[in-house]
């Protein structure tokens, strides 16, 4: 039996194709990015080793600050909208008396399966200053708050982040709803019998038990905020000016528009480092709550 399952030829045949593709297309490029970040390189001519030169240049790059700030705003919008509102909706929806739950869940999830291009273009139309849905709606309701949603250098990042929040709300909702549902009904009942109100019971029983779900939701929301790119590319092309730049947008511009591959690689490394750090911190925060 042991011999049967340790057939060397079979093992090699089975694992080699996946291993090769993965190593060539994922693993080796990751190492390449780290290595190339130490060079001055335009992608064609001989690369020049400059040590940490790209990194020190990056520290003085004003785009870095803009990008970090935008990543943070993006992440905050996702957390507040998807996790905040999503949790409230999941708790309400889990109530056994709710009618039409299937319909609600489906409606929330449909935007998730759409292509990001369609969603962004739809929202360009919705944000359109003269014919867009929002300004027209405000106009109809008599609210004198007509905005040029995507052209404000300071606030358009929120409008853009909202598009991502809207599209993937259903995803986070599905996770949160599954989290609420995984807690045995009796726990909640016991708390209500002990005199807790419904919301109090949720706060002291349901939410603490959903820790693992929240951890995952926070990791997704915050890392997608840090890595945001497509929405700003399609909706404002990073502008007005460079006001909607993010780390990924910097990589895109330096690598593919300015052929400054070494420098762009350094931005990639910083992006990954920040994402990993954020994931570690989220893990730490949630694990500490456990012992408290």
């Amino acid at each position: 039996m042991h011999k049967y399952l340790s057939n060397k030829t079979a093992i090699v045949l089975f694992m080699l194709p996946a291993l090769l593709v993965y190593s060539i297309v994922i693993f080796y490029p990751v190492l390449q990015t780290v290595y190339r970040s130490l060079f001055e390189w335009d992608g064609l001519s001989e690369a020049v080793f400059i040590g940490l030169g790209n990194y020190s240049e990056l520290m003085g790059d004003p785009l870095l600050l803009t990008s970090l700030r935008n990543g943070l705003v993006f992440a905050v919008v996702l957390v507040v909208f998807q996790i905040g509102l999503g949790t409230v909706l999941a708790l309400v929806c889990a109530d056994p008396k709710v009618k039409g739950r299937k319909l609600l869940k489906t409606a929330y999830f449909i935007p998730v399966v759409l292509s990001v291009t369609v969603v962004c273009q739809l929202w360009i139309a919705i944000y359109d200053p003269t014919n867009g849905l929002i300004n027209r709606l405000f106009d109809m309701l008599g609210i004198p708050y007509q905005q040029n949603w995507l052209s404000s250098p300071t606030h358009s990042i929120i409008a853009i982040a909202f598009v991502n929040a809207w599209q993937y709300m259903g995803y986070q909702f599905a996770l949160l709803y599954a989290g609420v549902k995984s807690i045995p009904e009796q726990y909640h009942e016991a708390a209500t019998i002990d005199g807790c109100s419904k919301w109090m019971a949720h706060r002291v029983v349901t939410l603490p038990l959903m820790k693992e779900t929240f951890k995952f939701c926070f990791i997704i929301a915050i890392t997608s905020g840090i890595g945001a790119f497509v929405q700003m590319l399609i909706m404002t092309n990073g502008g007005p000016g460079t006001s909607n730049y993010t780390l990924t947008f910097m990589i895109y511009r330096y690598a593919f528009m300015e052929s400054n591959y070494g420098y762009a690689s350094a931005v990639s490394v910083v992006l990954v480092a920040i994402s990993l750090l954020a994931t570690l911190i989220i893990n730490k925060v949630f694990d500490r709550n456990e012992t408290a």
């Binding site: 042991h2 399952l5 340790s6 057939n7 060397k8 079979a10 093992i11 089975f14 694992m15 996946a18 291993l19 993965y22 297309v25 994922i26 693993f27 080796y28 490029p29 990751v30 390449q32 990015t33 190339r36 890392t223 890595g227 790119f229 780390l247 990924t248 990589i251 895109y252 690598a255 593919f256 591959y261 762009a264 690689s265 990639s268 490394v269 992006l271 990954v272 994402s275 990993l276």
Partner: peptide, 29 residues
């Protein structure tokens, strides 16, 4: 199947799940 480095091979593969696409974008192009 039973072989020596199977645990290692699995971990090596799983690491890929945590690699954001931005980090392979440039070498991939």
């Amino acid at each position: 199947m039973q072989w020596r480095f199977r645990g290692l091979a699995r971990i090596y593969m799983i690491i890929g799940m945590f690699m954001p696409i931005q980090v392979i974008m440039i070498p991939l192009a």
